[in-house]
Each structure stands twice: as structure tokens, then as C-alpha cells.
Design a protein around this nucleic acid. Structure first.
Ligand SMILES: [Zn+2]
Ligand SMILES: [Zn+2]
Length: 668
DNA sequence: AGCACGCCGACT
DNA sequence: GTCGGCGTGCTC
């Protein structure tokens, strides 16, 4: 009797053995094949991970597999390595990793029939490569000197020509008959890079992979990569799991971006997974950014430890028209503000209007106002399901919770006392848009945030309008900061940045600096110099001082010093155990039981903190708490977590309680 | 995680 | 009398 061991998408840390039915025979080459198996009362798709000679389960309990699915070749050994690494490192069952990273069409029993893709006979306009600067040439030479594993941190400001370096590397790798994986943080950024890459390599098939693709398209693209017909895969974080038999290079663009971190299910960092993959495949990986994550910066520059990444800096402008903007601080303690806007910023906007140039006012808070209040009784718009306020969205007349999606119509009077005088408190992009249209009644104003650009299509339409010079003043959130070049934009005003300086989240300054560098990069070029005005009450703050000098390294080194003194990552390794339940007491009790584990004594290098309610203590009617785990050794942390997991699973808790572990947590 | 089985409160 | 609440246990 032949047996197979199958990984299934169930939150159980083990695989399941099945009999191979009469007339079917599997060989070692079939490890990695997908199978349909009976599980409980239903059927599921699983992946064959082994052909064991015997099972721990008695013969009578073994069921026979139902079908061997041969619509794709067996998943390859290096893909197994990748999944096994994630299972170990992120403390997730192997089956969950394997199945959840597969396109839905390949993990479902009844995938909808794939329609033949419409032929998009896009007559790609080919481009010829520009000449490289000396720096770019040196970067290219350094990275392509060794076809084996090396991680390169490519640090270069806007206009320094990182993308051109990627393209030259891609060219060489394609010429060597290998495939390339290009990763970008957001779906919004795929079309423009896709256009640029296709134009350069019209003969190499490129496929995109991101969550907005239909199930059928995603499956098709995934297959093309796996079968090798696609030579270039361009995608968001989920693309890192695409099997690519001839992979020769990985590029992670904007490597610092938080979007590479998955925030639900298996909470992996696609950038870190990509580095593992490159090492495992023995190929180079390039991490590019104008503002690298502090983890990467430390990996590349800390001289006390052997460098894990090789730093390559692009300091010259390679794009002829590129020119860094003049960044200035507007001291809002001295200037009186009108609706949150300083005279200086208003005047700068007027000048741009007169010169028919574009301005951008950056405010990272969508909606009209963060809260609605009653002046008579003190009522405030509170979400009934979360420990958070409902945000006023005047554009569609609703109060909306940004955490759970709950929404109601804006009341005409106070719900508790009937007072008609209820007022918005604070400012979001919608209100800013309104204020600006009062000040500049003849200006064409466009708001760009997640509410006005819900999909990639809507976003592209807005970008068209901006580039088509149909807009004078842009109001927007960080959506606007990423990626796009707007040639007529010469002014960026920044509002409300100070909040991040003193936020409880110790990563806030790092994010703020990256965001401001990025948004500042939107302003100006050689023929139309740019200006950035940052409204702040703390103009002497070192973060702004570094920003004015465009000095990422100074900022990063200072931050790293602070992190080291405070004992924060990357100088320590962390994991977070979170629990949520209808009652906070249950969540805390679960974490307390987790903490009370005798086995912890055998892990002296691991430090456990007391359970505490999360900052957003209730979300969608679930009360949330967390427990921080810390160790100076990544290895010790992983060993501890692996041992701890059995104890965690055995803790008795109310059925409505949910818990999860996050390794290298990003949010606190 | 699902999903079934199973044993006690308030409905027709 | 039963509908359904969720506690408990299992999945090869
Ligand atoms: Zn009131
Ligand atoms: Zn809510």
C-alpha cells in the first residue's frame, strides 16, 4: 500500500497521510503535486510533501486520496524550501504557507473555468537605453560582477537613476537566459514600471502579479512564470512566492515600504522572504530606496558586524531634468494660520497659480474632519464597535470608522441632546480641499486619497488629469507621494507632520522621514525648480534639519543610535503574541496563561513582557491585547517560539477568542 | 479554523 | 415539546 503525506490549509501544525488508490502510482518526482483529498466530511486541495513508507496513523484510519491534479507540474524543491523557511520563521503551519500563497484558482476544488484571455496586442513602443553616469556604471559593474548570492542596498535619491540600473541588470540576466522577479510595494506602481520594462524588453514576456488581478488572470500569470514562458515577473508582495525555475535576479524597489509587510494571515515581510530566496537560489538581490529601512541601512553600514548587505550609493542626478527641491520650514508658532494654512504657504500657492504651475498640499489624513462634536453636551462621534472616532466624510454625508468600516449618515442634530450645533473638529483632506477652494475660487483643485482613488483605474484617471495639466492645486495623502512624476509640480506644502515626531509608535519618525523625502521628490526639476514648505512647531527638530539637507544618512545614523540606546530593533529581535475576544479580560487571561509557561525557563535569552491592551483596544467588537517577546538573538527567539507554540495551542479559552503570533512586528 | 455532536434555557 | 446557544473534540 502506497502512502502520501499531504500539506493542507488548516491551522494545524502537521501534515495528513493518505492511501494512494489502486491503479495510481506516484514516484519521488511527484512530490509537490497537488491532490484532492477527503478531509472531515468535505474535500480539500493539498500538496504532496512526502511519500512515507509508513504512517503514524493506523491503516484503518487512512483514507484514500481522491484525485491527483496534473494541470500544473509538481511544485519544485526550491519553492518547498521557501515555504518551509516561512513556516519555521513566521511560525505558521506548512500547509497554510503553501496553500495560501498559491493563486486561488489552484487551491479551490471548483475553480471557475478560465476564459481565454483577450489578446492585448499592445504595440509597445521600444525605447533605447540612455547613457549611464559613472556612478550607475559602477553600480551595474559591482552588482553584476558576481552571479551568486549577494544582497545589495541601492541607495539613491529621486532622479539618481535607480530604475535604469535595474533595467541594465535585467538586460544582462535575460541575456543569460534567466528570469527576473521585480517587486514593487503597491499595485498603483505596477503599470508605469510595467510600461517602462516592456518598452525596454519587447521580446521578453512580462507578467504582473498582484491582488487586483482576477482569479483567472492571476492563475494564468503564475503558470507562465512557473512554466518559464514569462521571463519577467512584476508584482507586489505576493509575487515573492511565484515558482520561477530559472530565477536569476530579484529586485525589490522602495524596499523600505510598509506595504511589503503582510498585515493579516501569515504576517511575512516580502522583502525579507525575497532575501532568503535569493540566498537559497544563490542569486543576487537588489534592494532599492531613497530612504532605506533602518534595518537594511544597519545591515549595510554597521561596521561592528560583517556587512549583510553591500551598500551602493547613487549621489549624482542621472535624469537630466532632475533637481532636488529647496526644503524649508515654516514656523507655525510665529506665523498665524488661516484654516491651518500659513501665509507663506498661501502666498507660495498664489505664485504658482500666477505662473501656471502646480502645487501639492500634503496632509496624511483623509476625510473632512477626524471627529464630529456637540458643543452643548460634549458628545463626540464614536464608533460603537471600536475604541475609535467616526471620521466625518462630508463628501458623501457619512460618519465612517476607518478601522472597521462601520458608517452612518451624518446626524442633523446631536444624538444625545438634540442640539443642532454639531461641529467638525480637526482637519482632513476633504476640508482642506474646501478651504483651498474658498481661498482660490478660480483654481482647479483635485483631491487624491483612498476615497477619491479607490482602484488602480481611478488612480490612473486622476494621474492623467494631473499630467494633462487639468489641475492647479492637488490635495492629498501619501498616495500622491509615491512614484509618479508630475512635470509642472513645483510646490509641495506639508501639513500636520509634527504628530509623527512624538507618536507612541517608535517607527513613526522613520516613516515620516521617508514620506517627506518621497513627497518632496515630487517637486521641481531643472527648468522649474521646486520648493517644499513644511509647516511645523518644531523647526529645530533634527528630523527636519536632515530633511532640509536631503541628508538621509545623517537621519538614519541618528535614529539607529537612538534605537540602540533604547534597545529597539534592529538591535533586538521581537515577536508579538496578540489575542482578541469580546471581553478584554479573556484576551488578557489568554496572554497571562501564555506567559505562565514553565518551559520559558529553558530560554534565558528570551524576554517576555506583561500583556497589555493594544493601542486600538477594541476593533469590530473585539477587545485586543498583546504580549511582546524579545531576544538579542534571532535564532533564540525562533527556537523559543517554536517550543512555545504547542503551549499556546493547548491553552483553554472561550471559543470566540482569536490569537496569532507576529514575528518582526511592524505595528504596536 | 471549520464542523459536528451534545446538553440546558425560552419560545410556539 | 423543539430551536439554538456555544463548550468540546476531531480532522489522515
Ligand atoms: Zn449634544
Ligand atoms: Zn469601528
Amino acid at each position: 500500500m502506497q502512502l502520501v503525506r499531504v500539506a493542507l490549509d488548516v491551522p494545524l501544525d502537521r501534515c495528513f497521510d493518505y492511501r494512494v488508490p489502486e491503479g495510481v502510482s506516484l514516484t519521488a518526482a511527484d512530490v509537490g503535486v497537488r491532490v484532492r483529498v477527503p478531509f472531515g466530511l468535505k474535500s480539500r486541495i493539498g500538496i504532496v510533501v512526502d511519500l512515507p513508507a509508513a504512517s503514524d496513523v493506523g491503516d484503518s484510519q487512512l483514507k484514500a486520496l481522491e484525485e491527483v491534479l496534473r494541470d500544473t507540474p509538481p511544485l519544485p524543491p526550491d519553492w518547498f524550501q521557501l515555504c518551509q523557511f516561512c513556516a519555521r520563521y513566521y511560525q505558521v503551519p506548512l500547509g497554510e504557507v503553501m496553500l495560501s500563497t498559491l493563486p486561488a484558482g489552484l487551491r479551490r476544488i471548483d475553480p471557475p473555468k478560465a476564459r481565454t484571455p483577450r489578446r492585448t496586442a499592445s504595440a509597445v513602443e521600444t525605447t533605447t537605453p540612455p547613457a549611464l553616469t559613472d556612478e550607475q556604471a559602477a553600480a551595474l559593474a559591482a552588482i553584476s560582477a558576481d552571479p551568486g548570492f549577494s544582497a545589495y542596498l541601492l541607495h539613491g535619491v529621486t532622479g539618481s537613476g535607480k530604475t535604469e540600473v535595474y533595467l541594465r541588470l535585467v538586460e544582462r540576466v535575460l541575456a543569460a537566459g534567466r528570469q527576473v522577479l521585480l517587486m514593487v510595494p503597491e499595485i498603483n506602481l505596477t503599470p508605469q514600471l510595467e510600461a517602462r520594462v516592456s518598452a525596454r524588453f519587447p521580446d521578453a514576456q512580462l507578467v504582473s502579479l498582484h491582488s487586483e488581478l482576477t482569479e483567472a488572470a492571476r492563475t494564468r500569470h503564475w503558470r507562465a512564470a512557473f512554466e518559464g514562458s514569462a521571463r519577467i515577473v512584476l508584482g507586489t508582495r505576493l509575487a515573492v512566492f511565484t515558482p520561477m525555475p530559472e530565477l536569476g535576479l530579484i529586485v525589490v524597489d522602495e524596499e523600505h515600504d510598509a506595504s511589503f509587510k503582510q498585515q493579516d494571515g501569515m504576517r511575512y515581510s516580502a522583502r525579507d522572504v525575497a532575501v532568503f530566496r535569493a540566498r537559497d537560489r544563490d542569486i543576487p538581490i537588489v534592494l532599492g530606496s531613497a530612504t532605506p529601512s533602518l534595518e537594511s541601512w544597519a545591515n549595510a553600514t554597521d561596521t561592528r558586524t560583517p556587512a549583510r548587505y553591500r551598500l551602493i550609493s547613487l549621489t549624482e542626478r542621472a535624469v537630466q531634468s532632475a533637481r532636488l527641491p529647496a526644503v524649508q520650514r515654516v514656523d507655525t508658532r510665529l506665523e498665524k494660520l488661516q484654516d491651518g494654512l500659513s501665509d507663506r504657504l498661501l502666498k507660495a500657492i498664489s505664485e504658482r497659480l500666477a505662473r501656471r504651475e502646480q502645487s501639492l498640499v500634503f496632509l496624511n489624513r483623509r476625510g473632512y474632519a477626524p471627529v464630529l462634536t456637540c458643543t452643548a453636551c460634549g458628545w463626540i462621534s464614536h464608533c460603537r464597535r471600536c475604541a475609535a472616532n467616526l471620521v466625518l466624510h462630508l463628501a458623501d454625508g457619512r460618519l465612517r470608522c476607518h478601522h472597521c468600516g462601520f458608517e452612518i449618515r451624518v446626524p442633523k442634530a446631536c444624538p444625545t441632546c438634540g442640539n443642532q450645533d454639531i461641529l467638525p473638529f480637526g482637519r482632513g483632506t476633504q476640508r482642506l480641499e474646501e478651504v483651498l477652494s474658498e481661498r482660490f475660487p478660480y483654481a482647479r483643485i483635485l483631491r487624491v486619497d483612498r476615497d477619491s482613488a479607490k482602484s488602480r483605474k481611478q488612480w490612473e484617471a486622476l494621474v492623467e488629469r494631473i499630467r494633462g495639466d487639468e489641475v492647479d492645486i492637488l490635495v492629498g495623502t501619501q498616495m500622491l507621494a509615491k512614484g509618479h512624476d508630475f512635470p509642472k509640480l513645483t510646490l509641495v506644502g506639508v501639513l500636520g507632520a509634527d504628530a509623527a515626531l512624538f507618536a507612541a509608535d517608535w517607527r513613526a519618525p522613520e516613516r515620516l522621514f521617508a514620506q517627506l523625502m518621497q513627497v518632496a521628490g515630487r517637486a521641481g526639476r531643472a527648468e522649474l525648480p521646486g520648493e517644499v514648505l513644511i509647516q511645523t512647531q518644531y523647526p529645530e527638530h533634527p528630523l527636519y534639519a536632515a530633511l532640509v539637507r536631503h541628508d538621509y544618512a545623517a537621519f538614519a545614523n541618528a535614529q539607529l543610535k537612538e534605537r540602540e540606546q533604547a534597545g529597539f530593533p534592529p538591535y533586538t529581535f521581537q515577536a508579538m503574541l496578540r489575542a482578541e475576544a469580546p471581553q478584554m479580560a479573556d484576551a488578557i487571561a489568554y496572554l497571562a496563561s501564555a506567559l505562565a509557561w514553565d518551559g520559558a525557563a529553558e530560554h534565558p535569552e528570551v524576554m517576555l513582557y506583561d500583556p497589555v491592551p493594544m493601542r486600538l483596544a477594541r476593533r469590530a467588537n473585539m477587545e485586543r491585547a498583546q504580549l511582546l517577546i524579545e531576544s538579542p538573538s534571532r535564532r533564540a527567539l525562533q527556537v523559543f517560539l517554536t517550543a512555545w507554540r504547542d503551549h499556546l495551542a493547548a491553552i483553554k479559552a472561550p471559543s470566540r477568542l482569536r490569537w496569532h503570533l507576529e514575528v518582526d512586528p511592524y505595528e504596536f
